[in-house]
Design a protein around this nucleic acid. Structure first.
Lengths: 69, 69
DNA sequence: ACAGTTTGTCAAGCATTTTTGACATATTAT
DNA sequence: ATAATATGTCAAAAATGCTTGACAAACTGT
């Protein structure tokens, strides 16, 4: 699964740590880390929450052209 | 959780049944039905697969302004 | 009215996300 | 160099997406 560098960048733009983002979207820090590392697929609900906090759209943060898997 | 009428519409535009869409994205028909009924949150991977088959973007099919939850 | 297809729904079980707690490494500032 | 914060990672358990099989209700065409 692909690492999601875009979340990391968007987080940097907001000067936010993984822990802060995790708190804002009500998940554990490990979950945010795992998503950035591309270790598993979050639910659409969590993706939307992350987008709202980071001020981005689903397409900007979570679209991928290549069929994973 | 909100019913997703947009998938139903996009499916109709492609003249595709729930069963056909399910086969194309490798999930069960019940899963597609449950998503349209808004009964649970699919993973982002499944959302992307649905978007590719229906020729839509994540924002078009899966964005929601109101915080569900 | 009838047959065939599509959709909605239920329940039990399997698969994977997510949590919790913990620890090592990396980074930043003093 | 030291302390403090941030990140990466592991393992076991909890939560929830998803499957399978089945059946009723709704829709379509003949």
């Amino acid at each position: 699964m692909a690492r999601n560098i875009r979340i990391k960048v968007a987080r940097a733009e907001k000067d936010m740590t993984q822990g802060e983002l995790a708190a804002r979207v009500n998940v554990s820090r490990q979950t945010v880390n795992a998503i950035e590392q591309g270790e598993y697929n979050p639910t659409i609900k969590l993706c939307r929450a992350i987008c709202r906090v980071l001020g981005k759209t689903l397409d900007e943060l979570f679209w991928e052209d290549d069929d994973e898997k």
